[in-house]
C-alpha cells in the first residue's frame, strides 16, 4: 500500500468530490456508477475512469463491501506485551509466527508491542494468548472489545 502522499495537484476538484462521495456508500442498483454520475453531474464513463485512476494511483485502498468479521462468527482481541528492549526482535518473531496474529505494531510506551488476534472461535483467543505467554515468558494483556462505536471517520480529500 502506498504510504507517501500524492503530489498536491494529482487530484482535481472532481476527483476529490468523488472520493468524498464514495466514502458515504455505493448504490446497490444495476448501474451504480450512472447513479453517482447523475448526482454529481458526471457521465457514467467519467465516473468509472476516475475511480480506476484513483485506484491505480493508490488514492483508494479498497472499493467494495466492508465486512464485519465479528458478525460472521470470528473472534478478535487486542493484546499488548511490555517487551524488554533487548528481547524485542526475539519476541516479535515468536508472536508473528502465530497465524492468528493479524497485525502487530511497535508503539512508544512501556507496553511496546500491540497485536490483534483473529480466531474462528472465541475460545481460541485465550489459548493462543496463553501459548504466547508460555513461549515468551511475558504477560499478554488482553483487551477484547466490549463495545464498538461506529465510525464517523472520513478523510476529506
Amino acid at each position: 500500500m502506498r504510504r507517501q502522499p500524492l503530489a498536491p495537484d494529482t487530484l482535481d476538484a472532481t476527483d476529490r468530490a468523488l472520493l468524498n462521495r464514495l466514502q458515504d456508500g455505493f448504490p446497490l442498483t444495476s448501474h451504480p456508477f450512472a447513479e453517482i454520475g447523475a448526482e454529481m453531474d458526471l457521465a457514467e464513463d467519467d465516473v468509472i475512469n476516475r475511480v480506476s485512476r484513483l485506484r491505480e494511483l493508490g488514492a483508494i485502498t479498497r472499493f467494495g463491501p466492508f465486512l464485519d468479521a465479528a458478525a460472521m462468527g470470528g473472534a478478535f482481541c487486542l493484546c499488548a506485551i511490555a517487551v524488554p528492549s533487548d528481547r524485542f526482535d526475539e519476541v516479535m518473531t515468536l508472536v508473528n509466527a502465530h497465524p492468528e496474529v493479524a497485525h502487530n505494531y511497535e508503539r512508544v510506551h512501556r507496553l511496546n508491542m500491540w497485536f490483534v488476534l483473529a480466531c474462528d472461535q472465541p475460545s481460541q483467543i485465550n489459548k493462543v494468548a496463553d501459548r504466547i505467554e508460555a513461549e515468551t515468558g511475558l504477560t499478554v494483556l488482553r483487551f477484547p472489545k466490549l463495545k464498538e462505536f461506529f465510525i464517523g471517520f472520513r478523510v476529506t480529500a
Binding site: Q23, G25, F26, G58, I60, T61, A157
Partner: peptide, 9 residues
C-alpha cells in the same frame, strides 16, 4: 456488510 464504499488511502 457494514457498507459498500470506497476506503481512501
Amino acid at each position: 456488510i457494514r457498507r459498500i464504499a470506497v476506503a481512501p488511502n
